[in-house]
């Protein structure tokens, strides 16, 4: 891959908990401005990889380097990574009692004016009047919280978004809205990394990485990776005992 096009380079990442190796030498180049997918079965290490990239507490890699936009961020805390334009949307977004949607959206926004909150809510298909003064709590459905989280991320104007299981817990209509949003982010030149085990989500990416047992097995076109994933990973066709893999 061309290094000039790369916004995120992962070099030989290792992460283990006690004696359990979860990431085993991950090396990946993420090209700027594209939608990438990291696909793999449950337990492949996808979410752990995302947590390590984001530098979440307890997810410091034991070996390897993370280069983001030309800078080594391997040892930076999560908020410093976010301030440089890297962020994460969770599979199951957090609930915040008492925190209004408006304030949640603006908390990390580059432009903290109230119009920005309305604008990004419109982008995710939620009517600002109905949502701005509601709390990001259990009165919102999982799908609503997911869209509100995306709105808060768009308001940050990040360079790269890690999107963990965007289709989890939402209905078809909401998923369609998220797909529209992916197209929009791409048009704006924002890089997206989708973490998924859904062939439907995979189809929306430009490029894919196949992950299994803490390693990247393959990378390439969506068609090829998707074909392999559908036929060999669901159900898992892994014939090699994991310890020998």
């Amino acid at each position: 891959m061309d290094n000039e096009k790369s916004i995120l380079t992962l070099s030989d990442l290792y992460y283990s908990v006690r004696d359990n190796s979860i990431l085993r030498g991950i090396s990946v180049d993420i090209w700027k401005g594209y939608i990438h997918a990291i696909v793999g079965p449950n337990g492949a290490g996808k979410s752990t990889l995302v947590s390590c990239i984001m530098g979440l507490p307890g997810y410091q890699v034991q070996k390897g380097k993370i280069i983001f936009d030309g800078e080594d961020i391997t040892t930076l805390p999560v908020y410093e990574r976010a301030r440089r334009g890297l962020t994460l949307a969770w599979q199951e977004p957090a609930r915040f009692e008492g925190l209004k949607v408006r304030n949640f959206i603006l908390v990390g926004a580059k432009n903290k004016c109230h119009k920005k909150a309305e604008e990004v809510l419109n982008l995710v298909g939620l009517e600002p009047k109905k949502y701005l003064d509601r709390a990001v709590d259990r009165t919102l459905s999982g799908g609503e919280r997911k869209r509100i989280e995306l709105a808060s991320i768009i308001a940050m104007e990040p360079k790269l978004i890690l999107l963990d299981e965007p289709d989890s817990g939402i209905d078809v209509e909401a998923l369609e809205k998220i797909f529209e949003l992916l197209d929009l982010l791409k048009k704006q030149g924002i890089t997206v990394v989708l973490i998924t085990h859904s062939p439907v989500v995979l189809e929306r990416a430009d490029h894919a990485f196949l992950m299994c047992c803490g390693r990247i097995l393959d990378k390439g076109s969506i068609a090829r990776i998707s074909e392999y994933f559908k036929n060999k990973c669901i159900p898992c066709d892994h014939k090699v005992p994991l310890g020998e893999f």
């Binding site: 507490p57 999560v78 976010a82 977004p93 925190l99």
Partner: peptide
């Protein structure tokens, strides 16, 4: 709550800043 904390830290807030926002939210109910 750890998830609330890291969600806000992934928006660029330090741990202390995020903690204050979470507490403010709970006390504002």
């Amino acid at each position: 709550d750890a998830k609330q904390l890291v969600t806000l830290m992934a928006r660029g807030l330090t741990e202390d800043e995020a903690t204050e926002i979470i507490i403010e939210g709970i006390l504002s109910k």
